[in-house]
Nucleic acid binder design. Structure first.
Lengths: 137, 137
DNA sequence: CTTGACCCCGTACCTGGGTACAGGGATTAG
DNA sequence: CTAATCCCTGTACCCAGGTACGGGGTCAAG
């Protein structure tokens, strides 16, 4: 069980030193013991924990949710239900955002197409579509 | 062409008074003339302009982009090409975000499914999947 | 004439997730 | 021995897009 300096940990996880300190302040990784001169000496599993944080972040979990997942991880038993609940909530959220964006993409797509079709007229169909009531400023 | 107080404008557009002032500071709506006592007296077309801002925001345009669209709107001629360019860029952006989210949703969906299938074991498949040692989700 | 709703300005604050100094001490390679 | 890298703390700042607050002036109704 080697001890790692903050820079080493950061390099291994692929994040910045400042970010590691930030995560420590935020309680996402335990405050490690210090050397005589005050340097942080992280145990191996701090690296695992920080990788967990990164992976979860890639899945769109907020730091708050990640904190919950980490808490649940070290608690025994029925925690799986709680974890599942968080994942389901996140999934619903992601799907809602996809639906929103898809609606927006559709409108934008139509605008661009209209623009292509109408290339020679003076009026811009895109602006007209966003502001139907304003014809000429 | 009536003149409207800021509160009236805000009500008509469906935003807050503070937001109207913020948009004025940001140059999204012109600074209106004032009454003798310093009240803003917005012309009718300020309401239209602010509605334009809101609609464009719903389509995911940033305030910077909306400023550009508004500038283009009052300029004649070939502005349509510029408008189209902004819309195309925004569309590409939206589609990229959809792709990202879809990937995330897929992973989350698999995790929840795994959790359902594995309800009686002690290990939580979700946590295992996020954990670094099982890094191929 | 007073009450309450409205308006003014300027500035500070919020969210999330970090990033960037400034001003020091520690460690290590040459 | 010295210079280059580390590391420490604390504070401030970044992004967008607002939101809130404090301390005041104004306007219409009753």
């Amino acid at each position: 069980m080697a001890a790692h300096t903050i820079g080493e940990v950061a390099r291994r996880v692929g994040i910045g030193v400042e970010t590691v300190r930030f995560y420590e302040r935020e309680g996402l990784v335990a405050s490690p013991p210090r050397s005589a001169s005050g340097y942080r000496l992280f145990p191996d599993d701090a690296v695992d924990r920080l990788r967990f944080v990164r992976r979860a972040k890639e899945l769109g979990f907020t730091l708050d949710e990640i904190r919950s997942l980490l808490d649940l991880r070290v608690r025994p038993g029925a925690a799986c239900d709680d974890v599942r609940e968080i994942a389901v909530a996140r999934l619903a959220d992601v799907e809602a955002r996809i639906a929103d964006l898809r609606r927006i993409a559709e409108v934008l797509g139509r605008l661009v197409t209209a623009c292509d079709a109408d290339r020679d007229t003076a009026d811009c169909p895109i602006l007209d579509a966003i502001a139907p009531e304003v014809r000429d400023a």
